[in-house]
């Protein structure tokens, strides 16, 4: 899986799940603000990544995953 493939698939999954345009998902954009994540929808994000990449993001790693780029990096280095 190349970086481009991860970015394209993650963005399209997030666009569908959170009903947000892909165009706003720039690498430095904050996940929380861009996707309007709260404590309930954060669980959806974690589940989506787990189901599609087999990557579990434990609670203690969440503070490190702030931007879209952080998320792509996390998936790339853990899958």
């Amino acid at each position: 899986m190349t970086r481009e493939e991860i970015v394209a698939k993650v963005n399209s999954m997030l666009a569908e799940e959170f009903e947000v345009e892909e165009s706003v998902m720039t690498p430095d954009a904050k996940l929380k603000e861009t996707l309007s994540l709260d404590s309930l929808s954060l669980v959806d994000l974690i589940a989506l990544i787990q189901q599609n990449y087999g990557v579990k993001i434990p609670a203690e790693d969440l503070p490190k995953v702030k931007t879209f780029k952080d998320l792509y990096d996390y998936i790339e280095s853990h899958s």
Partner: peptide, 10 residues
């Protein structure tokens, strides 16, 4: 059972 974060389980 899915993931659990802060006492919320999916």
């Amino acid at each position: 059972m899915g993931p659990e974060i802060d006492g919320i389980t999916l």
